[in-house]
Structures are given as C-alpha cells and as structure tokens.
C-alpha cells in the first residue's frame, strides 16, 4: 500500500524536522516547504492527501496558501493550520477560506498524528 502524502509548510526548520521524523515514523510521506511559495510548488507537483501549514510564513502566508489551494487549484485536500497564541482572528479567516482543522502552538506531535489519522483514513 502506498504511503499517504503530506505537504508541510513551516519556516521553523527544527519543528519541520521533528514533524518529518514523527510523521514518517507513523507511516506518512512528508514533503517540507520552507515558505508558502515552495509549498504551492510541492502541492502542484505531488498532489498530497493532506496539507499542514503555519499561518505566519515568508513570501506567502498560510492564509494565502489556503486561498490558492481552494480557489485557484480547486482542491478539496484537508488542510490543518498551525497558529500561535494571539492569532485567533487569523484562525477564523483560515476557516472562512476553507481550512479543515487547526492546532494552536505549542503543538503536540502525538495529537497531530491523531488528527491526521482522522482526516485521511
């Protein structure tokens, strides 16, 4: 059975590395993008089963990424948004744009795996 593909857009390199380790151990194929622009390239070329994105990112924010995926690429891929404290308004905007779920930072990798499993069985 082929592994489910996930694209992670996260500019914190050590968090990205940690999630890569955790998610690959849980049986997923994770592609990392350092910014929103790279994430769009990866989404277009890999057609992932799920997208994980931070809200604050260089070049293209998580909100712009969600908008691009939903409105330009017309994809229904589930999107989980990571948000830091004090970004409540951005989280609401993310849901308006079509985000599927959100996790507040600091995140628990174990909880993330549970949420991913629920979204892409």
């Amino acid at each position: 059975m082929s592994k489910k593909k996930i694209v992670l857009a996260e500019d914190n390199s050590v968090l990205a590395l940690l999630l890569k380790f955790k998610l690959e151990k849980s049986g997923y194929d994770l592609q990392i993008a350092e910014d929103g622009k790279q994430a769009i390239e990866l989404i277009e070329s890999h057609q992932p089963d799920l997208i994980l994105t931070d809200i604050m990112m260089p070049y293209l924010s998580g909100l712009e990424l969600i908008s691009h995926v939903r409105n330009k690429l017309n994809l229904e891929t589930p999107i989980i948004v990571f948000s830091a404290a004090g970004q409540e308004e951005n989280v609401l905007s993310a849901f308006d744009l079509g985000a599927t779920d959100f996790m507040a930072k600091p995140i628990s990798p174990n909880e993330l795996v549970i949420r991913i499993k629920r979204l892409i069985r």
Partner: peptide
C-alpha cells in the same frame, strides 16, 4: 529554544 516554544507535552 527554537523547538521548545513550538511543541508541548512530553517532548517539551
């Protein structure tokens, strides 16, 4: 520090 602020639970 870069990781400590971003994760919670047993890893923290």
């Amino acid at each position: 520090i870069k990781l400590k602020d971003e994760i919670s639970g047993e890893l923290e």
